[in-house]
Structures are given as structure tokens and as C-alpha cells.
Design a protein around this nucleic acid. Sequence first.
RNA 1: GCGAGGGUGCUGGAGUGGUCAAACAGGAUGGACUCAAAAUCCAUUAGCUUAGUGCUUACGCAGGUUCGAAUCCUGUCCCUCGCACCA
Length: 1012
Amino acid sequence: MKYDFKKIEKKWQKKWEQEKVFEVEVEKRKKKYTIIEMFPYPSGEGLHMGHALNYTIGDVFARFKRMKGFNVFYPMGFDSFGLPAENAAIKVKEHPKKYTQRAINNYIKQQKALGLSYDWSKILSTSEPEYYKWNQFWFLKFLEKGLVYRKKSFVNWCSKCKTVLANEQVQGGRCWRHEDTEVEIKQLEQWFIKTTAYADELLDCIDNLKWPDKIKTMQKNWIGKSHGIEIDFEVENSDKTTISNVVIVHGCPGDEEKAMNPKTRTYDKHWIPWIKNKLEKKEIKVFTPLMPEPWKANYSQWKKEFDKLNVNGKSVLIGHSCGCAFLVRWLGETKKKIKKLILVAPWKIAQSGNAEEEFYNYEIDESIKSRIDEIVIFTSNDEEEDGKKSVKIFNKLIGGEIIELKNHGHFTLGDMGTEEFPELLSKIVGNKSWPIFTTRPDTLFGVTFMVVSAQHPNLMELVTDNQKKDVEKFLKKIKSVSAKEMENLEKIGVFTGSYAINPVTKNKVPIYSGNFVVADYGSGMVMAVPAHDQRDFEFAKKYGIEIKQVINCEEINKKAHIGKGKLINSDKFNGLDNEKAKQEITNFLIKNKLGRKKVQYKLKDWLVSRQRYWGTPIPVVYCDKCGIVPVPEKNLPIVLPDKVKFGKGNPLETNKAFVSVKCPICRGNAKRETDTMDTFFDSSWYYLRYSDNKNRNLAFDKKKVEYWLPVDQYIGGAEHACMHLIYARFFTKALRDLGFLKFDEPFLKLFNQGMLHGPDGEKMSKSKGNIINPDEVSEKYGMDSARFFLLALALPDKSRDWSEEGIQGSSKFLKKILDYFNNVKIGKSNVKIESKLNKIIKEVTTQIENFKYNLAIIKIRDLFNSLSSEESKDVLEKSLKLLHPFCPHITEELWEKIKGKGFISLSRWPEADEKKIDENLDKQEELIKKLKSDIEKIKKLTGHHRRTPRARNALQGAKKNPKIYVYVLPNELKTYQEVEEINLYAVNDKNKYDPENKSKKVKPNRPGIYLE
RNA sequence: GCGAGGGUGCUGGAGUGGUCAAACAGGAUGGACUCAAAAUCCAUUAGCUUAGUGCUUACGCAGGUUCGAAUCCUGUCCCUCGCACCA
């Protein structure tokens, strides 16, 4: 019979939709099960068969869990912001909004045609203001909490995407979207999210997740936690010890210090005496002038005092707090040239400062930065708000490097908890000390050189005039290396001219710049121990650097010695086992304040700003007076303007109406941020929004989120291991700490589906022309056939190739089932089939539970193949149910036929009845099968149809169409009873007819056969 | 280089100590049906041999453990995926 699959599919898809079969609501009493597939980016090209496979894998699971009695939450949405829409807009001149809407509509249509059981009422799309309003909301919350910050740093830029990229989006030095495009390193100011704040928790929770091990290890490696020690190495650059003097201007204390004597007052204390002492030991002249009446500081009085000092082009000026305000004003007025200006916790806000108002109220002269070699501003994460504002004010006009330290408050003794301020010291003397991270302190005595990253921002500070040419040549050379060569690049480097001093041996070792050191891991410089590190070894061999053995082993010739051993050449640590030495040396360094224990992560903060249009606008404005100002929550969403000009850079920049705004604080003129958010921001929390997708007042209702989330089963590709999946985990934790969520992890279980390749075994792509279109397949064979075929092909997490014959086979099988149900007589079933059915129910249930769909399908095939022309209604129903998750349409159709009403989609999954399972029946069946096949063979060889040469041979000496006698053991008589066209005897049968004594050879399960 | 997972018949892919020449499917070959084809059904599909039981060779390669290995162990080669100079 012919079947109109398309008609059946349409019929049921319509019914499911009309009767809202898959729509769910919070039902406190029912156990929920949430299944979410990574939502797609709606591409204009529509779905191909590979997508169909991905969704079907989830759908089978959802249908199964639903039948198992769970309140199944299975929504779908669209990750609709993103570059392709914008690029299409530029190319075909269609607005991204239109393009996206069209693509989404097409997706929905296609997805519905696949027979997926989504609850479409929960749909969302990230490019709608109702959604991205909450992106902006989260951004502001993060900002408040200090989880978002803006920083100038070295970032990755893709020239094709025309935007910066997050670390996670750079793969092997290339853009994740453009495998042929090497990213450029640029120094830019960008927005970052402090994912590193959760590095430890992200790492620790991984083990509790039921995720594929592969993904778990990938994430662990990405976070890359390692324990080690940071050792301070003094760095010497003979060219740069050219400071004539250092002047430190203290801040302004409150009135209470007026009466205090020099011993008890604090304003010229905290780190000032310490730094003075340190510098004087290095024979640097230090002035720490006491300014007149600092509790009511007056600029001209201070100036009089200050002018007494010899400030010249080689001076370093340091200010603390309002001392900074003084220095900047003084530098502006006198137009003096100096070497360095260092502002420590600067202050420029009159209302909250201790000095007279006129002291602060002056215009900063921007030109001073042209007269100073280096400007540095120190601040702290826990500085007061006005202090932070002051930093921004100074930085905006005179620039300079901002160094934010942790828990230093206003850099007074109480705030810092110590008078030591080594960061300042190193800034004054020009990075005189570098902290070096190592996990091998046991080899410290074997350090024979240092290597600093060629990309390090402070590299040039180490380079002496003599070496400048060489270094520049080297930098040029490594820049021209193509991405391909990067893969097994030779380690090369160049001497910088500077030396480092080993803190324990006091040996002077050369500092090289090398292409194999990562700039932003550790401090960007490594201590090299060529005897015990392969990389260092190669480098040392190449440049003829000394190789000093410190762990006892054989002569080192071709390879470094990496393993264990006892220490040698290591002074008082000699003879120690190297593992033991690690601890001892670490303790020694800590005791002598030469180093500290350090945990180092590979994970970096997430760069979220993008210089593109089609994304969520970042909700801040830049005000000339107030600096960076967050947009008040009540003004959200900041809607992306429709009317923009595409083509040159970010269209938002040229949109005046969007850019020019009033400052929310001072009402003055301000500029809106034109960067948009990385679309991974959108996808970091969409699963939460599903639970309450229409809420206009909240991102989601707490009760709804708490019922439906976290996701029980998440399904998606492995390519997101270190991107989406880390961001989403971070988000969940951050929102938890902001009080929005109660759980720690978004996705309890994760399944990675495999990929569907084209018939040629290649990845499906338009350019290869091997794309299989689901619409066409469904037209030809029906969607159920396609689903059945795709899932039968391989384990769902393995990749597979599409094949036309394959789907024909599946289609045949389904037709057979339809035929069978059209002809089957409903009556009684025998014990055998009952046993088989129950056994298979048991197997299929666990197989689906464990995503072994292909094995489940094998069993289901076996089951249907064993059904006879008459079966009980119960057997038929249960069999259909087993098939339903895979082939939802035809099973609904057949269900209607035998049951008359209701949806099989909503029926209960069958339970296996253990009592009915009889293992022996199976074995018996096999024996019969074997005997039947033997008889078949004999008949063929002796019958009329002998067309093969073999059959002709075999016939010699045998009668045509002989009678067949079969002898079995008496207890097996019953087993073989049903084999037709033979004469069956038990070996001890009285009536036996056995001229050749065949019965003597009969063994258990092995009948004897005699032909007459 | 490191980490993870693999290598089974013509193909996809089951199988983790005997019941395995190896599920299930696809392909191929032969047969039944038919005037013929498609569809359907049946059989065969490592080699030799027998009516049948039998024998030989096989689960990347080479060894080992065992009464017995696709399955356990050791070494080795190859493939796929991920990270990539992380100190």
C-alpha cells in the first residue's frame, strides 16, 4: 500500500498545536524535567539535515521523559543577534532586523515540520528589546558589583569581523569564525567581565556535573589552575639608573592631626619612610618635604615650600592623595620637565578633601603629559568613590598607566595593613624587580637566563640602547611569521641588554626576549632552567647559554632532564629530593620575603565589548565631567536605533541621535557608549528567561525559575566547551550571588551530539554542495523515516554520513509497520512474544535513558519483526509506544487506528513485566531457526531449483526431494515440534526409522538429520 | 608535545573472557513471485569441505596471561577530536 507520509505528518503537527499538547505550566505536584537544546542562530540559509538530527536527539528524549510522567519543559528560542545578520545587511542591503525576522520565521516553520515537541509558547529571541533590556540590566548589576570593568589592554582583533574578540574566541591564534584570519594584537580600552573572580568555583564544581569527560577536561584545562611561587628577581638596566632625585609630597590630614607631634601624626608616615629608606639604600636622593599646615592646605604656601627643592628633568615626583592635586597644578603652572610622575590614591574632589577649596579648584593642564616620560596612577579596588572619580579625572586629562591594587584603600597604614609598598618601589626605579611565576622552585639554582615575552608592554624598558636595533629586528621577524608556521615554531629570541639577579645565588643572568613566552600569563617573564626544561634547553643550545645541572642525573646532551632526583649545586639544599626541595626552597623564599605562594590561572577576564551594530547596546554614557556613568535602570532598554548607515565601521558611531545624550548625573553633554555586547552575553542566561519569557517587569519570576531550573538535560555541540558553557556557568554563579538564583550550576547533565556529514563524508556546507535539505527528504520519505534513519545510524554522540540507501531502508521498515497494522488481527498473543516484548521494553528504556538510541532502534526493529498476524491489543499498543519517540507521526496515526482516541504522545511509557520474561524462549527460537535453515538448505540442494554449480555437485548421490528425518533428545522434542516438513523423532522413540544410526551422534541442541 | 576517544566483515556499526565467523542495518549475489521490472518475501555473503556435524584463517601490528581472548596485560603503529610553547 502507498502512504502519504506528508499528510499524516501535517495532520498530527496541526493537532498537537491546536490542542496545545506540549504546552506546560508550573505544576508544583508534578515532577519537572527540563530539556534544553543550545538555541540556534537563525541563519538565512535555513535548516539542513544536520540540524534535524540535533533537534531529533533532544525530541526523542523529551518525548520519552514526557511519557515517563514528567512535566517536561522543552522550549526553543533564537540567538538572533550576531555578525552574519549584519554582514548580510551590508552585502544585500537588507536591514538586520528584517533579515533576522525572516530567518526566524523560516526556522520555526522548518522546525515544526520536523515533528519536534517544543512548547512554542515559551519562545524568545535575543534581538528583541524585551529580551536584551535584561542584558543591559545584568550589565549594570555586574558593574555595581565590580564584576564589569573597563581597561586598556592588549586585545585580539579580527580584521574580518572588524571587532575585538574574547580570549575564548581565539583558536590557535586565529579567529573562531575565520580560520584563515590571524588575530591582531592591539592595545585598546575595552569592557571586561571578571570571570576570573569565579575561577576557583568554576573549576571546583566541574566534578559534580554529569557532563562528558571530554568537556570537563577541556574546561579544566581552560581555567588552567596551577600552584607555584612568585619569586622576585631584581632587574638591572645600566642605561636607566638615571634618577637624580625623588620627591614625595604627602597628603592632607584632618584637623585632628593638627595637634599631634611628629611621632603620632600619620600624614607623612605609612609607606613614606619605608620607600625613603629603600631608595636611599640604592643611593638615590629622596626629599620628603613637610608642607605647611596641611590640614588647611593652601596652594601658594605649599608652592613656596616646594620651590626650594631641586626638581629637574631627572626627578621623580610622587604625590599622595591631595599631594597629587598639588603636583599636577604645580607642573601645569611651572611647565617643568620631569622624568616620572607617580600619583598614589590621588584626590581632586574639593567637597570631600581636607584642603581648602581653592586648592583643588583649578584646570588641569593637559600639556604636562608631553613633558613627563612616564605617568603612573596607583589606586585600589576598595578606594572611596570620590577617590575613584579623581583617578578618572586625572587619567582622562593627563593619561598615564592606572595600577589598581587590592585592598589598599587610600594607601594609608590602616588601609594597607603594612608600610611596605613594593609596587611603588619598582615603578620608581623602573621595574627594578620582576615577580617570576614558577612551579619549579627546586630548580632555582639552575637559572642561567631569563626570557621576557616579545609582546610584553614593558619590554622596551629592559632594552638597552646597544641592543635596541637587534630587538627591533627580532620583533619585526616574529611578526611576519604566518599562523601556519606558528604551529611548531622554533624558539627564538634576542638579548635585551638587561640582567636579572637570582635572589638566592645573587648571580647575574642575561634577560632575553623570546617568542615562546606568553605576555599575559604570570608576569610575562620566565626564569629559564635549561638543564631541566626542554624548552629552555633548546633555547640555551641555540644561543650558547650555560646549562647548569641542579638535579642529579646523567650528563645532559640532547634533552633536558625533567624527572625526579636529588639536588646538586644548590648550596644548602644539596642532597634533598627535588619534591622536598620544592617545599624547602619555597619556605626559604617566603621567610626571606623574596617570594610568595601563588595560584595562577590561565583563564582570563571575558572581553565583552564589540565594535558592531547588531548586538545589545552597552548601557553607559561618557560624561566630560562625571566620567563613565551607568544608565539608570528606569531608562532601560536602550533600544538599538533602526536607522543607521552600514558600511564604514560601527554604524552606531555615526548615528548622532544615538550617541549624543545628556549625562544622567549632571545633565551635561555626554556621549553614549557605541560598543555592543558579545552575543555570548545573550546566550549566557536565555535558559532562565524561557521560564518566564513574557515578563515585562522582571527578567524572570523567582518562583518560575526555581521550579523549572536548573536544566536537567542540556544538549548541544562540543564546540562550546570553553565558550558558551563557561560563560553560562559564570552567569549562573554571578546571578546567584546577586540574589536572583538559588542554584549554582545551570546544566546538570550535558549531552554532545555528533555531526551529520554529507554523503561524501565531508562536513555539510554550502560550498561543498553536500547539504541535505529536510524539506526534500520529508517530501520523499517522510520525516519519521528520516528521524528513524538518522538515529539508527550511529550512537547519537558519534558523527555519521548521510546516505540515500539508508533512508530508503528505514522508509521500507516503516511502511512495513503501517502495512502490518492495516492487516493485523487483534486477538491473543503468545507467551513468546510477551516475553520478547517485556525484555525489549526493559532494554529500550535504559537505552533511551543513556542516549543509546541506535541500540534501542535495533531492539524495536527486532520486536516488530517478531510480531505475528494476530496479536493482543496490549502488545500492539506497547510496541507502538516504544517506537513513538523516534517516529511520532505514524505512531500517533496507528494509535488512533487501534485506540480510537487520545494522543500517544501523552500516553504512559510501558513498564516491563519481569514475570513474563523467559530467557529460554529466546534460545529455543534460535535453535529452531538454525534447524529450519538447515532443512531449507537441504531442500534447496536436493530439489529442482539447482542452478548453482555447488548445488549440482551436492546432488550427486542424493535422491530428489528426499524425505527428511530429524532425531533429537527426548526433552527437546517439544522445542522442534513446530518445524514443518520433517519427520521428527526422539532418539529413544520406539517407531524410529534410522538405518544409518544417525541418532547416535545426536547431542544436546544438535539434532541428527537423515535423508531417505 | 599534552589530554580525551578510537582502530571489528564489502560498508555503517554492535559486541568487553567461552554460547562469536561476530547483533542490527545497508550493499552485493542467488532464488521465489512475475511475460518482465519495481515492490515484497527467502537464502547466501572469510576460505576449504560435507547432506549435516568438520577444518583453516580472521576483530590495526607484535608479543604475553589463560584450558580458552575481538574482549585482559605489555609494547608498537595509525586515525579522530581538543589544548597548544602556561613557566
